[in-house]
Amino acid sequence: MSLTLSLHTSPEVPVEADVISPDRLNNLNESALSALPVFHGNVQAKIGDFFKVQGQYNGEIRVEGDLSKVKHIGAGMTSGRLIVNGDVGAHLGAGMQGGKIIVDGNVADWAASEMTGGRIIIKGNAGHMLGSSIRGSATGITGGEIIVHGNARNEAGQAMRNGLIVIGGNSEDLTGVNMLSGTIIVLGKMGIRTGAGMKRGTILSMHDADLLSTFTYACTYHPTYLRLYLTYIKKLGFQIDDAKLSGNYERWAGDSIELNRGEILLYRN
């Protein structure tokens, strides 16, 4: 039986629980787990104050309940599986290095910020700064995969240096802003100012978009490599029809203010 943490008491103010991570919960029995510290606002509390702990870690942790005030779940994790049932608070999987997080619900801001490896699957929507850097830093995620089935808000993939972000729904403003490299695929629509300041990297949308004046139209073609990506995400459960697989994409180069080595691809037909 995998280890299950079920929320029994909703926190009044945010709980910071980076301790909910396979690295930290491994090899502990139920009572030791319950006694692990979390911060409830400024008060040091225990996991047991909020969660009913059942089972033994067998490579997988399940967390259940309305976790929208629980922050930092899975932050920094290096291995194992973390399955979250319910909406979850900020900084989910921040700085994650490996392993897998699956969220059946929505996640708040800064999910997967500065991630270096592993995979996060979000079945609902994501907040702002999905897979971004933390303030002041010029580098966001440097690896790993962030798979969102719903929508994402502003600054998805901000300053991303490597890795893959897939957004099944729409993204809002500044998708891939200051991107250094990597790939962002938005199956829905994007907001404005996509790719502002990007140096390298790819941003793909299946819809038209208003682009900044510093992006230059190159051609309409069907990039072979896209077939690899689309095939890959198809296997992850996204609907990709053949028209998209073999279709034509507008290629826009930018941002000319920076290196001008990035590309925005917009599906045409």
């Binding site: 930092h72 932050a75 920094g76 933390i134």
Partner: peptide
């Protein structure tokens, strides 16, 4: 150096 939130 605080170890809590090393990732933060």
């Amino acid at each position: 150096k605080a170890t809590l939130h090393a990732s933060m």
